[in-house]
Structure formats: structure tokens, C-alpha cells
Amino acid sequence: MAINVGKTAALLVGARSPMRQLTLRGQDVEWQTSVCYLGCHIDRSLQMVPTVNRAVNHAAAARIKRRIYGAYVRSRLTYAAPAWFALCLASQRQRIQIQQNRCLRLIVGAPRYVGNDVIHKDTRTPTVEEFVHHVARMFARADNSACRHLHGIAPLHARPPDGRPQPRELLLSPTTCPDAGFDEDGLGQQ
């Protein structure tokens, strides 16, 4: 088996000073205080502090990116959506969903072969349609809330003379309303 000596390092665990010089295939092997093996940073103490720090920082960055997505990108994609989303053609809804998929893929740095459903599940982010249904249900819950100041916050108006349902009624119909749970910031499933 061919070994790349340039990528080989020696790590002395627990000792203060390195032992004698090691050689491999006639080349000196460098002594290091920490090494990276398969993405894990191992230090002399074997307490895995650098690996844990890296994992915590990556998780915090992903959470911040997800919140930025919810605050800036999704708010633009779904602005006033309960009023118009039910009236859109399927192709227009698909365009909005594609944009969400692109944003989430960019946030998590997912390669092409990772499915959009996997990204949504891992980031606990609902599809655009699930989110719009959730927002429409919030208005219905506000009308039935014990808090009087929420009543009529977004009232349903009378149907037009032709009898067509209002967009929010279309969204709230049991056949088109997926029931997804959301966390405290409305970003995804609990």
C-alpha cells in the first residue's frame, strides 16, 4: 500500500516533549500537537475539544442561516400568501417551491444528489405550501381564541355573488390542508 508521507503526522498523547524523530520511507514524520483524521480534530489530551468546538460552531451557523432564511427569504416568497396562494397555478406554486429548495440547499451546502425532501426534513423546514396552510390556520385560530384582541384580526369577507370560495377558504379546506407541526418560530416541524 502506498503511503503519502506528506500527509502523515505523529501525535504523542500525554507527553510534554516529542520522542525521537520518526521516519517513514526515508522521510521524517512531523510531530504535531493535534491532527485531523476523517474530519475529527484530535489533540494531545484526547478530550476532543477542537472537534466539539467545530461541531457547535457549525450547528450555530446553520441555525442562524435558517432563521435568516425564515425572516428574509421566505417572508418575501410568501408575502400575503393566504390571500393569493390558493389561486395560483400549480406551475407558479412549483416555481416558489423551487426557489425555496435552492435557498435551503445553499444554506446547508448540500450536493446535488441529496434530495430536497431530505434537506427539508433535516432542517425541519416545511414546504411553501405547508407553511402557507399554517399561516391560514393561524387566522382561523385567532378568531376562535380566548384572547378577544385577536378576534377579527383578518376577517373573512362575504363570498362574492358568483359563490366562489375566498382564497383562505380554499386553503383551509380539509382536502388541501396538510397538517404540519411547527416549532416556536414557525420554521419547521416540532
Rank of each mutant, 00 (worst) to 15 (best):
T78V: 15
L38N: 04
S145C: 15
W84C: 11
V52C: 09
Y113E: 12
A10H: 00
D122A: 14
E130P: 00
A61E: 12
D179S: 10
G14E: 03
L87C: 13
D162R: 08
C147P: 02
L150T: 05
R63A: 10
H120N: 10
Y69N: 07
A10N: 02
A10Q: 00
E129Y: 04
S173I: 05
P50F: 05
G26W: 02
N57G: 10
G6D: 09
R112H: 13
Q32A: 14
P18F: 03
I68W: 12
I64N: 11
S34N: 11
L171P: 01
F85N: 00
R141H: 12
Q92Y: 08
D179T: 11
A86M: 02
H133V: 13
A158S: 15
G188N: 02
R159A: 14
P178L: 07
A71L: 15
E130C: 04
G39P: 02
A62S: 11
P174F: 08
D143L: 15
L77Q: 04
Q166W: 00
A110V: 04
Y113M: 13
L46W: 10
R63D: 13
R93V: 00
A55G: 06
L104E: 00
R66S: 06
H134P: 01
C177M: 09
R74K: 14
L150M: 15
D28I: 09
A90Y: 05
T123I: 01
N101I: 06
R164M: 03
L22F: 09
V73H: 02
T33I: 10
T123Y: 00
R164G: 05
C103M: 10
G115P: 04
L46Y: 06
Q32K: 14
R44H: 06
R168A: 05
Q92S: 11
R63T: 10
W31V: 03
A55I: 09
L46S: 08
N116H: 10
E30L: 10
Q166D: 04
Y37W: 15
N57D: 10
L11N: 05
C36R: 07
T123R: 01
S34E: 15
L170S: 07
A81K: 00
D185S: 10
C40N: 11
H151L: 08
R25A: 11
T33K: 13
D185G: 08
M48D: 01
Y37I: 13
R74F: 05
A142W: 02
L156I: 14
L187W: 06
K7L: 07
P111M: 09
R54H: 13
E184S: 11
V29N: 03
A60I: 10
Q97L: 08
G152A: 03
K7T: 05
R112V: 09
D185N: 10
G14N: 04
R105V: 05
L104R: 00
L38D: 07
Q99M: 13
L12I: 09
D183S: 06
